[in-house]
Design a binder for these strands. Structure first.
Length: 195
DNA sequence: CAGTGGATGCTCT
DNA sequence: GAGCATCCACTGT
């Protein structure tokens, strides 16, 4: 199985683990797809929830790697992170977009939306499509309801600046699968490349 | 097409 | 009381 390989990967430096997560397939209760966009956050990073040490909602980020950190964003959305690096480091990878492959009908029902390109093309969107919420905060990733499988071939990666933050914006810690049309930017009808 | 603003809850000042 | 690791509807070109 890939569960052991996943935990090994997440136990390494978050700047290594984040780009290496692209191409992995993630399912939650059998619904999900291929990871195409992520961002790295860590404790020495003013944009990170873990900046300044373990307090309140961020304590899961300082726990062992291979667990889910779920928080509420802007009072409305849930965002899903994978905790990285050895226990106590406060590093995690934010999942920003998936290419939906499994359970499309379930995702369409949850999102009340047909277009596969829009189902998981943003951190709040993918949690809604996969049914991820506060109940998943702190859960281990190598057990139900999570299921991960490794990519079968190397995935080319672009590194860019992170989205939606106001501090440390210059760090190029957003990683996107080269050429994907399922990322949170470039996936909207208005921003799609012309045919 | 781009730009703006509202919804809504938790953390921190 | 402000500020968010956001999304969507609505406006004006």
């Amino acid at each position: 199985m890939s569960a052991g390989a996943l935990v090994d990967l997440l136990g390494s430096d978050v700047l290594e683990a984040a780009p290496a997560l692209l191409g992995w397939t993630m399912l939650v209760d059998g619904v999900g797809g291929v990871i195409v966009e992520v961002e790295a956050y860590r404790e020495d990073d003013p944009a990170s929830h873990s900046f300044g040490g373990p307090r309140g909602r961020n304590v899961v980020m300082f726990g062992p790697p291979g667990h889910a950190y779920v928080y509420r964003s802007y009072g409305i959305h849930w965002c899903l992170n994978l905790v990285c690096e050895p226990e106590g480091c406060g590093a995690a990878v934010l999942l920003r977009a998936l290419e939906p492959t499994t359970g499309l009908d379930e995702m369409r029902r949850r999102r009340d939306l047909q277009d596969a390109r829009m189902l998981c093309s943003g951190p709040g969107r993918l949690t809604q499509a996969l049914g991820v919420a506060k109940a998943h905060d702190g859960l281990a990733l190598d057990a139900a309801p999570f299921s991960f499988s490794a990519p079968t071939a190397a995935v080319p990666v672009d590194a860019t600046e992170r989205i939606g933050i106001t501090k440390a914006v210059e760090r190029p810690w957003r990683f996107v699968s080269t050429g994907t049309t399922f990322a949170s930017r470039g996936s909207r009808a208005s921003a799609r490349p012309r045919a």
